[in-house]
Simulated scan of single mutants.
Amino acid sequence: MKQRTTAGLAAFALGSALVLAGCGTGDSSGGDASASASGSPAASASPVVAGGTCEAQEQPAPEQPAPTDADQKAVEAIEVEGKPGEEPEDVSFKTPLTLEGAGYNVLDKGDGAAIEEGDEVTFHDYTVNGADGKALPSSTWEKGAEPTVMTFGDPTFPPVLTEPFTGINVGARLVVALAGQDGSVQVHVLDVVDAKAKEPTPTKAEGEPVEPVEGLPTVELAEDGAPTLTIEDSFEEPSELVVQPLIEGDGAKVTKEDEVTVQYLGCLIDGTSFDSSWGRGAPASFPLNGVIPAWTNGLDGQTVGSQLLLVAPPADAYGEDPAAHELGGKTLVFVVDILSAKKAAQG
């Protein structure tokens, strides 16, 4: 069954912090995805000189402002017509809806199984634009779509995406409304349809080591699998994407239509770390059709369980223009452990 992850909802909550998605995707996880860029270097037209050692920097869990009294009152005033477990007939509120941060309101606690920490929670997400009150096409009730899946208590998600699920059961209906970093507001009516213990996922690549081509950055692994990347002063930036397997797994082949769960480290060629799932303490998940070309093309055809070294020139990353993105004009180096893959939701 095709299922969505919380990529869209999490991406909106975190705004432009989803580095790999560029303009915002992918679950984390597990994608878009979701991956924070806190600590990213400021955009600059100055060249980056090769040479340095890069490792994961600890990154705090994403934060969302605590609901203000005004935010809570605004969310509690949102009216939803229709039975829980069925597509809402109407969602009404005074437009435009303005919020400083976020808020939520449990409309029905549900009478099914209780949701436990670590459960994989499946829910429908009916999304409404706070500016005009119109439903958005990202609704999981749309024909051909499938419910969203989230791990309750996932540390990579801000509290506004986990706290509302505390103390509720399968069958619950709740409203979550939040402001994005650009000030726009979305309203999400969430209907919980299932909750079950999550199947364990590997935390690092496991397979046969592969001898890399000479001249590439080298990787050393800690006992837990966290990589340290060393880039020599003599390293020459490639003109085309470099995809170098370091560990070859024996799992299924990944396709561009998949959603992957990965551990990764992202570095500039001077050894500056700009993003890492290792630094956040949990893998990330996102659809490969919603990330930079280096990831879409580099992971395509690789096998689950593999570890890859990706060296992405600007054309395969964020383009040549540093004014368009803080990483624009820069060659990026990634170490990626492919932990799992499944078909991503379409549309």
Rank of each mutant, 00 (worst) to 15 (best):
Q3I: 08
R4G: 15
T5Y: 07
T6C: 13
L9E: 04
A13E: 08
A17K: 13
L20P: 10
G22F: 11
C23K: 15
C23I: 14
G24M: 15
G24Y: 15
T25L: 15
D27H: 11
S29A: 07
G30L: 13
G31A: 14
S34A: 15
A35E: 06
A37E: 09
A37V: 07
S38K: 01
S38A: 11
S44N: 12
A50F: 04
G51C: 07
E55Y: 04
E55P: 05
A61T: 15
A61D: 13
E63H: 09
E63N: 13
Q64W: 12
P65V: 08
A70P: 11
K73R: 08
V80P: 02
E81D: 12
K83I: 11
P88S: 06
S92M: 06
K94M: 04
K94Q: 10
E100P: 06
E100A: 14
G101W: 12
A102V: 11
L107T: 04
D108Y: 01
F123W: 09
Y126M: 09
T127Y: 12
N129Q: 03
A131E: 15
K134P: 07
L136I: 05
P137S: 12
S138G: 12
T140H: 10
A145N: 14
T148F: 13
V149H: 15
G153E: 09
V160S: 14
V160L: 13
T162V: 13
T166Q: 09
A172L: 10
R173K: 02
V175A: 01
A177K: 06
A179I: 15
Q181L: 15
Q181G: 14
D182K: 05
S184A: 06
Q186H: 11
H188D: 10
V189R: 03
L190W: 04
A197C: 06
A205I: 00
E208M: 01
P209Y: 13
P209H: 10
V210I: 05
V210D: 03
V213N: 07
P217A: 02
T218H: 15
E220T: 14
L221S: 10
L221Q: 04
L221C: 00
D224T: 05
G225C: 11
G225N: 14
A226R: 07
P227V: 02
T228G: 11
T228A: 12
T230R: 03
F235L: 07
F235E: 08
L241P: 01
V243D: 01
L246S: 06
L246M: 13
A252L: 00
T255C: 08
K256A: 00
E257V: 10
D258C: 10
V262R: 01
C267Y: 02
L268D: 06
L268I: 01
S273L: 11
D275M: 15
R280A: 02
G281V: 11
P283Q: 07
L288S: 08
L288E: 01
L288K: 08
V291F: 08
V291I: 09
P293H: 03
P293T: 09
A294F: 14
T296N: 02
N297M: 08
N297F: 02
L299W: 00
V304C: 00
L309M: 10
L310K: 03
P314N: 07
A315T: 05
A317S: 04
A317W: 01
G319Y: 08
D321V: 12
G328S: 07
G329D: 14
G329Q: 09
V333Q: 05
V333W: 00
D337C: 02
K342E: 03
A344L: 10
G347V: 13
